[in-house]
Amino acid sequence: NVNPCGDDASCSQTKTSLLCQCKPGFQRNKRNRQCEDINECMVFGACSQHCNNIKGSYKCACEKNYKERNNSCIAKGSEDQVLYVANDTDILGFAYPFNYSDAHQQISHIEHNSRITGMDAYFQGDMIVWSTQFNPGGIFYRKLHDRERRQSSSGLIVKFKRPRGIAVDWVTGNIYWTDHSRMHWFSYYTTHWTSLRYSINVGQLNGPNCTRLLTSMAGEPYAIAVNPKKGMMYWTVIGDRSHIEESSMDGTLRRILVQKNLQRPTG
């Protein structure tokens, strides 16, 4: 019983003719009229990572620490991923897939008319670190898996009352932050902005040492980020000439990265 249409096609016999149709995963070659395998891996998006073409079909494969689901590779344990959000007076944790309407965890709540101005996650230390302004102003942290859910001041900020952006160096555990002023709050509103002591600072999370890295600011330093692997930090400045700067994490090698067409770079 030889299939006149070939092994890769189905055959339908009528009274007057023979109808051949390629099986799924095959297509007819217009030159020799034979059914040939379709290489689905040549189609963009067939698989999210690796694609192995097999006769009449294909198979997706994933890198290590990923698993396959509906031809897509997702990170193993993604169901345990949490998105942390600072929402003015609250720090919230949203479980994957990060739907606000679903149940979420309140990491911390800020009272006394204070508000959160910056936040970063320090996963190596299993904690969330954030900054607040006024009542009280300072830097605080909370252990993510602390059963007693205690809120503790890091002891890092004593005289600095107006921290803004904050970033954690996950290699050394040091904290970098931008600060508005060491003045009394009344002086902030009665002193010209050029006299305010804007600064970029660094300190230890659980230590007494902190220092001002940079104090010469042509505007208000706002957001800050660090890249410990390259030993660099980056921050935004708001003012008459808003810009984005970078320097090494010890304050040297300072230069402006972006200056044109910036209005108010807050993050």
Rank of each mutant, 00 (worst) to 15 (best):
T190F: 09
H50W: 10
K30I: 14
M249L: 06
D169Q: 00
G45P: 04
E111W: 11
F94D: 00
G6K: 03
G25V: 07
T215Y: 08
L205F: 08
N206W: 09
Y234G: 03
S199Q: 09
L214G: 00
D146W: 01
K76P: 11
F94K: 05
V82S: 01
Q105P: 11
T236V: 04
H180I: 13
E245Q: 14
S57N: 15
G231S: 02
D90V: 08
Q204A: 03
Q133A: 06
T132L: 02
S181G: 08
G118D: 04
H243Q: 14
W185C: 08
H109R: 13
A95D: 10
D126A: 04
R33N: 14
W130P: 09
H112N: 15
S48N: 03
V258K: 00
A61Y: 05
N209M: 11
I116E: 01
Y84P: 02
P265S: 00
K159M: 07
M183I: 13
G219L: 01
H104M: 09
V171I: 12
R162V: 12
Y84V: 08
A218M: 02
N39Q: 09
R150S: 15
A61R: 12
C62A: 02
Y96W: 14
S114F: 02
Q105H: 14
Q124K: 12
T266G: 02
R69Y: 07
K159H: 10
S181H: 03
P4T: 05
D102F: 06
G239W: 13
N32K: 01
G267Y: 03
E148K: 12
H109L: 04
D250L: 02
A75C: 03
S181Q: 05
D8F: 14
W177C: 00
T132H: 01
R147Y: 12
